[in-house]
Protein backbone atom coordinates (compact mmCIF):
# COMPACT_ATOMS: atom_id res chain seq x y z
CA UNK A 1 0.00 0.00 0.00
CA UNK A 2 3.00 2.22 0.21
CA UNK A 3 3.25 3.25 -3.43
CA UNK A 4 4.18 6.80 -4.39
CA UNK A 5 0.97 7.22 -6.35
CA UNK A 6 -1.22 6.27 -3.41
CA UNK A 7 0.70 8.41 -0.93
CA UNK A 8 0.46 11.41 -3.24
CA UNK A 9 -3.21 11.00 -4.00
CA UNK A 10 -4.40 10.03 -0.48
CA UNK A 11 -4.38 13.51 1.15
CA UNK A 12 -6.36 15.03 -1.74
CA UNK A 13 -8.73 12.07 -1.86
CA UNK A 14 -9.42 12.16 1.87
CA UNK A 15 -9.90 15.93 1.81
CA UNK A 16 -12.42 15.51 -0.98
CA UNK A 17 -14.21 12.76 0.97
CA UNK A 18 -14.37 14.95 4.07
CA UNK A 19 -16.08 17.71 2.08
CA UNK A 20 -18.43 15.17 0.56
CA UNK A 21 -19.25 13.71 3.99
CA UNK A 22 -20.27 17.16 5.23
CA UNK A 23 -22.40 17.62 2.10
CA UNK A 24 -24.11 14.28 2.79
CA UNK A 25 -24.61 15.26 6.42
CA UNK A 26 -26.31 18.54 5.53
CA UNK A 27 -28.62 17.24 2.82
CA UNK A 28 -29.79 14.44 5.08
CA UNK A 29 -33.07 15.66 6.47
CA UNK A 30 -35.31 15.22 3.45
CA UNK A 31 -33.05 13.31 1.09
CA UNK A 32 -30.84 10.24 1.42
CA UNK A 33 -27.95 11.05 3.70
CA UNK A 34 -27.61 12.28 7.25
CA UNK A 35 -25.31 12.03 10.21
CA UNK A 36 -24.70 8.31 10.23
CA UNK A 37 -23.85 7.83 6.58
CA UNK A 38 -21.95 11.12 6.48
CA UNK A 39 -19.95 9.99 9.47
CA UNK A 40 -19.08 6.72 7.78
CA UNK A 41 -17.79 8.56 4.72
CA UNK A 42 -15.63 10.74 6.96
CA UNK A 43 -14.29 7.61 8.69
CA UNK A 44 -13.36 6.15 5.29
CA UNK A 45 -11.49 9.37 4.58
CA UNK A 46 -9.50 9.02 7.81
CA UNK A 47 -8.91 5.35 7.08
CA UNK A 48 -7.49 6.05 3.62
CA UNK A 49 -5.29 8.78 5.04
CA UNK A 50 -4.18 6.37 7.77
CA UNK A 51 -3.34 3.56 5.34
CA UNK A 52 -1.27 5.94 3.22
CA UNK A 53 0.46 8.10 5.80
CA UNK A 54 0.26 6.18 9.07
CA UNK A 55 -1.84 6.35 12.20
CA UNK A 56 0.22 9.10 13.79
CA UNK A 57 -0.54 11.46 10.93
CA UNK A 58 -4.28 10.82 11.31
CA UNK A 59 -4.15 11.45 15.04
CA UNK A 60 -2.29 14.72 14.42
CA UNK A 61 -4.81 15.80 11.83
CA UNK A 62 -7.79 15.09 14.10
CA UNK A 63 -6.41 17.31 16.90
CA UNK A 64 -8.76 15.84 19.54
CA UNK A 65 -8.74 12.15 20.42
CA UNK A 66 -11.43 10.26 18.44
CA UNK A 67 -13.12 9.00 21.64
CA UNK A 68 -13.39 12.57 22.89
CA UNK A 69 -14.92 13.49 19.56
CA UNK A 70 -17.55 10.80 20.13
CA UNK A 71 -18.20 12.26 23.60
CA UNK A 72 -18.66 15.74 22.11
CA UNK A 73 -21.07 14.29 19.56
CA UNK A 74 -23.15 12.54 22.22
CA UNK A 75 -23.28 15.75 24.22
CA UNK A 76 -24.44 17.77 21.19
CA UNK A 77 -27.11 15.16 20.46
CA UNK A 78 -28.41 15.46 24.03
CA UNK A 79 -28.45 19.26 23.73
CA UNK A 80 -30.64 19.04 20.63
CA UNK A 81 -33.37 17.36 22.71
CA UNK A 82 -33.68 20.22 25.15
CA UNK A 83 -35.17 23.19 23.19
CA UNK A 84 -38.60 21.57 22.95
CA UNK A 85 -38.87 21.87 26.75
CA UNK A 86 -39.10 25.65 26.40
CA UNK A 87 -42.11 25.34 24.09
CA UNK A 88 -43.98 22.83 26.25
CA UNK A 89 -43.58 20.09 23.66
CA UNK A 90 -42.46 16.47 24.10
CA UNK A 91 -38.71 15.83 23.92
CA UNK A 92 -37.07 15.74 20.50
CA UNK A 93 -39.90 17.69 18.83
CA UNK A 94 -38.14 19.47 16.00
CA UNK A 95 -37.76 23.24 16.20
CA UNK A 96 -37.15 25.12 12.98
CA UNK A 97 -35.47 28.42 12.35
CA UNK A 98 -36.09 29.45 8.74
CA UNK A 99 -34.67 32.72 7.48
CA UNK A 100 -33.38 34.45 4.44
CA UNK A 101 -29.63 34.27 4.00
CA UNK A 102 -28.14 36.22 1.11
CA UNK A 103 -31.20 35.71 -1.01
CA UNK A 104 -31.62 31.97 -0.44
CA UNK A 105 -33.73 30.29 2.17
CA UNK A 106 -31.72 28.79 5.03
CA UNK A 107 -33.31 26.27 7.38
CA UNK A 108 -31.74 25.51 10.71
CA UNK A 109 -33.32 22.96 13.01
CA UNK A 110 -32.79 20.75 16.03
CA UNK A 111 -32.78 17.58 13.86
CA UNK A 112 -29.75 19.08 12.12
CA UNK A 113 -28.05 19.61 15.49
CA UNK A 114 -28.91 16.01 16.41
CA UNK A 115 -27.52 14.81 13.09
CA UNK A 116 -24.28 16.68 13.67
CA UNK A 117 -24.08 14.90 17.04
CA UNK A 118 -24.62 11.53 15.37
CA UNK A 119 -21.99 12.42 12.75
CA UNK A 120 -19.40 13.16 15.43
CA UNK A 121 -20.26 10.01 17.42
CA UNK A 122 -19.85 7.85 14.33
CA UNK A 123 -16.63 9.58 13.25
CA UNK A 124 -15.19 9.36 16.77
CA UNK A 125 -16.18 5.80 17.64
CA UNK A 126 -15.39 4.13 14.33
CA UNK A 127 -12.19 6.07 13.70
CA UNK A 128 -10.89 5.05 17.09
CA UNK A 129 -11.67 1.40 16.29
CA UNK A 130 -10.08 1.68 12.84
CA UNK A 131 -6.98 3.40 14.19
CA UNK A 132 -6.42 0.89 16.97
CA UNK A 133 -6.83 -1.98 14.48
CA UNK A 134 -4.32 -0.36 12.18
CA UNK A 135 -1.87 0.20 15.03
CA UNK A 136 -2.04 -3.49 15.96
CA UNK A 137 -1.33 -4.34 12.35
CA UNK A 138 2.20 -2.98 12.69
CA UNK A 139 3.28 -5.31 15.49
Amino acid sequence: MNTVIFRTIAPYLSALMMVFSIFVLLRGHNEPGGGFIGGLIAVSAFAIYGIACGVAAVRRSMVVHPMSLAGIGLFIAVLSVLPSYLFGQPPMTSQWLIFDFLGSELKLSTPLVFDIGVYLVVVGAITSIALSLEERDVD
Binding site: M67, S68, G71, F75, V78, G88, P91
Partner: peptide, 28 residues
Protein backbone atom coordinates in the same frame (compact mmCIF):
# COMPACT_ATOMS: atom_id res chain seq x y z
CA UNK B 1 -49.29 15.73 20.08
CA UNK B 2 -50.73 19.23 20.20
CA UNK B 3 -51.50 19.78 23.86
CA UNK B 4 -48.68 21.34 25.84
CA UNK B 5 -46.70 18.84 27.87
CA UNK B 6 -46.50 19.22 31.63
CA UNK B 7 -43.05 20.10 32.88
CA UNK B 8 -43.21 17.23 35.39
CA UNK B 9 -43.59 14.72 32.57
CA UNK B 10 -40.06 15.57 31.50
CA UNK B 11 -38.94 13.62 34.58
CA UNK B 12 -39.39 10.57 32.33
CA UNK B 13 -36.47 11.55 30.13
CA UNK B 14 -34.26 13.52 32.52
CA UNK B 15 -32.55 10.38 33.90
CA UNK B 16 -31.66 9.40 30.33
CA UNK B 17 -30.54 12.86 29.27
CA UNK B 18 -28.48 13.22 32.45
CA UNK B 19 -26.75 9.88 32.04
CA UNK B 20 -26.07 10.42 28.33
CA UNK B 21 -24.71 13.92 28.87
CA UNK B 22 -22.79 12.76 31.95
CA UNK B 23 -21.36 9.81 30.06
CA UNK B 24 -20.33 12.13 27.23
CA UNK B 25 -18.58 14.51 29.63
CA UNK B 26 -16.88 11.59 31.38
CA UNK B 27 -15.61 10.29 28.02
CA UNK B 28 -14.25 13.70 27.09
Amino acid sequence: VTQPVQGADWLLVTPLLLTMAGGAVAIM
